[in-house]
Amino acid sequence: MNPFRYERARDAAEASVLLGKTPAAMLLGGGTNLVDLMRLRVAKPEALIDVSRATSDRVELLPGGGLRLGAGMRNTDAAADKTLRARYPVLSQALLSGASGQIRNLATVAGNLLQRTRCVYFQDVSKPCNKREPASGCPAREGYHRNLSILGASDACIATHPSDMAVALMALDARVRIIGAGGERLVPLAELYRLPGDEPQRDTTLQHGDVITHVEIPPLEFAKRSRYRKVRDRASFAFALVSVAGALDIRDGMVRDVRLALGGVAHMPWRARIAEEALRGRPAREDTFREAAAAELRAAQPLRDNAFKVPLAQRSIVRTLLELSAEP
């Protein structure tokens, strides 16, 4: 690990100022990903600005019925929050499907959002990787990629985003509140994350000096009927090969409204808007679910060893919708 200076920020505004003073500074939350990346010499910050006690660690009710999570809230606490569990079960389940009990006790909400891909080439400094070292190449395309992208990838990068929580938040139209050089702003998750294009080194649209203070979730009455389904190589403590966050509103046997997002398939949590559109106003039946899932995956461009993800994603969508439609 390279030497670094350690500073603890009192609040997010101070963290933003401290970041601004040092171009090679990084924010430290729980450290469960960053400390590992530093040990692997993938991350080489000159300074760590500890924000783990600088932002709220609570769930608060928003006027109008939404919730907001403090950026410094530990994953365990977010997942166990009673209001969150009742209103957005998909989010609690997604959090609990991620990592291990020990890691969830350290990991923060903002750190979860900003964790890096687990592509093996990104984590191995002896190999080229366009995300770690722009223009060095991508061995994943020809090499080990069974866990990588089938949607929205580029020639430069086929990495997947590893977070489960972010998949649920994407389905719930969450926004992040940010303090940066230009003041405070709210950014939808769909605009926080980005596809790799020819700049895979950028996971997000954040600028240096930006500090996430909260995640805000708008009210969604029917999200009380929502769930997270995660498919992985072992029963627990593994990253998703494919995951589905879904919420379903059925009236008189018809799909009134639906939210769907996929994990493990792209550089960002993948909102399945095509499937959602194909479902609204249609009968809540397996054949409709199958058609919608197939429509969403039509744009998939699988590689040699991850083509299994295409039918797996489709079946996972169908199964999630079937289970949701069977809920009382």
């Binding site: 430290l28 729980g30 450290g31 590992d36 291990s100 020990q102 890691i103 006790n105 350290l106």
Partner: peptide, 8 residues
């Protein structure tokens, strides 16, 4: 409970 290896 935490992983002491990941905690600075």
């Amino acid at each position: 409970r935490v992983n002491a290896c990941l905690a600075l």
